[in-house]
Amino acid sequence: MKFTGVNLLDELERREMADLRAVFRGRSVAKGEVVFRPDGAEDLVFVVAKGRVRVYLAYEDKEFTLAILNPGDPYSTHSGCYIQALEDGELLVTDVRSVKRCMAEIPLFTRTMVRVLGHILRNSFSIIGGLAFKDIYNRLMDYILSEARSSGTPEGGGRLLSLNLTIEQLSQLMGATRQTVSTLLNDMERAGLMEKRGRGVYFIPDLDALAKAAGDDPK
Rank of each mutant, 00 (worst) to 15 (best):
R54P: 03
D43L: 13
Q179R: 08
G156Q: 00
V93S: 11
S79M: 10
L8I: 07
Y137R: 12
A22D: 15
K31T: 11
I83M: 14
L165A: 05
A49T: 05
F133W: 06
S171H: 02
R15F: 14
G129R: 13
E33A: 03
H78W: 08
V116P: 11
A30T: 04
P71C: 05
V55G: 11
R101K: 15
V93D: 12
L170Y: 08
R25M: 06
L108E: 14
V114P: 08
T166I: 01
R159P: 04
Y137C: 07
S151P: 03
F3C: 12
S162Y: 13
L165M: 11
G26R: 10
G198C: 05
G198T: 06
D187E: 10
I144L: 15
N70S: 10
R27G: 04
V23C: 13
L161S: 02
L207D: 01
C102P: 02
Y59A: 10
K134V: 05
G129W: 13
G156L: 00
T65N: 11
L145A: 03
S28A: 14
F3Q: 13
C102L: 05
I83P: 00
A49R: 13
V201I: 10
K100D: 13
G175P: 09
M103Q: 02
L207T: 01
R14S: 13
V48H: 06
K50T: 07
A49S: 12
H78K: 04
R14T: 11
V116G: 10
F24T: 08
Q172V: 02
T94P: 01
R139V: 04
V93Q: 11
G89Q: 06
S150E: 15
G130Y: 05
M103E: 01
L57K: 12
L193W: 01
M174V: 04
G130D: 03
L170R: 06
G40L: 11
N70C: 05
A213Y: 00
G192I: 01
T65I: 07
P218D: 08
S126M: 05
F125N: 05
L69Y: 09
F3G: 08
K100L: 15
Y143W: 13
N138A: 09
C102F: 00
V29A: 02
F203I: 01
G130V: 04
M188W: 03
S126Q: 07
D61Y: 12
M194R: 00
A211T: 01
Y137T: 12
L173P: 03
L66F: 09
R199I: 06
I127F: 06
G72L: 06
R149W: 14
D208Y: 05
E168F: 04
L86T: 04
S126Y: 10
N123D: 08
M1N: 14
I204T: 00
I167P: 05
L91G: 11
G51F: 07
E11K: 14
M1G: 14
Q84D: 09
L44C: 13
G80A: 05
A176P: 00
I128C: 06
S151C: 08
R111I: 06
T112R: 08
S150N: 13
G40F: 12
D10P: 07
P205M: 02
F133G: 02
L57A: 15
Q179F: 11
E13W: 09
A176Y: 03
M103V: 02
L9C: 12
L184N: 04
N186C: 06
F24M: 09
E42D: 11
